[in-house]
């Protein structure tokens, strides 16, 4: 089918090519991408050709692409998975880890094998433990609007004019630094890297971000129910004291308008 698409409609020359690589994830990240609804159609019309994604297209083997959106962690006892993630790094200019599993392992951090009929499938690693990852989009499921923003910024970075490239770089920097920060995340990060560091000011962002309602506030400070936390990394990444980039966020009105206009 995709072949016919290519034959029938010449892809717009300056679109970027994007693929969705599915490791051990649940496809919830892809659903989130699709939950841009009409915006998804606009992205595909104007900015990105979807060149790979087993759930959406018939291409069976990983092609060369500008941006790989990787969902899921990697089972290191599964040769195909390990081979595919390495291939993804070779074929993609930019690798984006989408969602808690790809970034931090998420619920696969709890996997310990022993289940029929592949008891040896006990070790799942976040993508960043096997290849270099450029950009992180944490959360479970990740937020459609953040995936959208990253896609638009990736387009500007690769195809935009100088100013647009500069903006895209600035926007993506903290998400790149999150990728540099490492592959471990937990509600405990709020304690280790915010409260213990004397940085918490009790805004409540972490509790709002938590997808399993594991975080409450006790006298204005977060309490994490560690027996609910799934290790998706949303709370820490959402915290304004994990990163706050003064060269981007104060421009929120203009940037949001620009993204809205781009998706019209």
């Amino acid at each position: 089918m995709a072949e016919t698409i290519k034959k029938e409609e010449k892809p717009v020359a300056d679109k970027i090519t994007v693929g969705h690589v599915h490791m051990s994830g649940c496809t919830g990240c892809l659903v989130s991408l699709a939950d841009n609804y009409g915006g998804l159609l606009t992205i595909l019309d104007k900015y990105a050709d979807l060149v790979y994604g087993l759930t959406l297209a018939d291409v069976r083997h990983i092609p060369k692409m500008d941006v790989a959106l990787v969902e899921g962690s990697v089972c290191i006892q599964d040769k195909i998975s390990v081979q595919e993630i390495k291939e993804t790094r070779e074929k993609a200019a930019v690798v984006v880890a989408v969602g808690g599993c790809a970034c931090y392992g998420n619920i696969t951090r709890f996997t310990r094998g022993g289940q029929q009929n592949q008891p040896q499938h006990e070790s799942y690693l976040p993508v960043g433990d096997l290849i270099k990852v450029d950009v992180y989009i944490p959360g479970c499921a990740p937020c459609p609007q953040l995936i959208r923003n990253v896609c638009v910024m990736a387009y500007l970075l690769l195809k935009g004019n100088k100013d647009q490239q500069e903006l895209a770089k600035k926007y993506l920097t903290p998400l790149m630094l999150l990728a540099d920060r490492g592959t471990e995340a937990c509600g405990c990060d709020l304690m280790y890297d915010v409260v213990n560091q004397g940085l918490c000011m009790g805004c409540g962002s972490c509790a709002a971000a938590c997808p399993v309602r594991a975080i409450t506030h006790e006298y204005g400070k977060p309490n994490v129910n560690r027996e609910m936390c799934i290790k998706c990394g949303a709370c820490y990444a959402q915290c304004p004291r994990s990163f706050f980039n003064f060269d981007v966020i104060p421009e929120f009105e203009g940037i949001m308008d620009a993204i809205d206009a781009a998706l019209k």
């Binding site: 051990s24 696969t108 996997t111 592949q118 499938h121 399993v212 609910m228 799934i230």
Partner: peptide, 20 residues
Amino acid sequence: PVRGVEKLALGKTMDQVPKI
């Protein structure tokens, strides 16, 4: 790959397992 949810559930709380 088998993520083994039935086995990783063992010993965890009844509140967390459905979330996993």
